[in-house]
Amino acid sequence: MTDVMSNVLVVDDEPQIRRFLRAGFEIEGFSVREAETGNDAIRAATLHAADLVILDLALPDMDGSDVLQRLRAWSSTPVIVLSVRASEAEKVRLLELGADDYVVKPFGMAELLARAKAALRRQALGISGESTVTIDRLTIDLAARAVWRDGERLVLTPKEYRLLQLLAQHAGNVVTHQQILREIWGQLHVNDTHYLRIFVRKLRQKIEPEPNRPRILLTELGVGYRLAAAGDRPLE
């Protein structure tokens, strides 16, 4: 998917962080542009089309979430946020504002790359019309609206399929509780997380080889769910 060289815009005021991010992305074949402030970032994003934005939240001139909002006003470029720990509420807020995913500082390059590639793949999915997502031995065929495990078609309820579809469209990236609840149960139910917990439990019984040790449908505590993607494990 990085056949065509993707452009990454790295927005962070710490030069050392920008330096390792540049190295990490360049090794993987990305071309990197840097921005030090929020204003720089917005200017750079307008002038040079970026395929992906890595956005630090603590910028000297404005809040990272303001940059995100102004970016989202005209662009659907994937944005991955560099967040700090112990602020699940903020992560959820940023995801609701349109961020595609987050990593928690300090983070390893592999984790960030996995998130970034998942976000880029999603962008590409819309364009290429590719319609199957495979995780482990599970295949989700978005065109045929069918889910297969080990070549066997699974019987899912319409809501179960819609949840898998939603997660598959963001495969590898997190989807918040609120996004899921709004999408499947409607705006009235956005706070009914307990629905979702019980629902996910049932769905795991159908799709996970070991429902007690999920490998496919993963929980992001306090934030939401994600479908697993290769190499996305955080540092310990």
Binding site: E14, I17, R19, F20, A23, I27, P106, G108, M109
Partner: peptide
């Protein structure tokens, strides 16, 4: 301590995966 650690850790993960 944390601020430089973000760079150290990040740089180390880039290094340890570099060909």
């Amino acid at each position: 301590l944390r601020t430089p650690l973000v760079s150290i850790l990040g740089a180390a993960t880039v290094l340890s995966n570099a060909a």
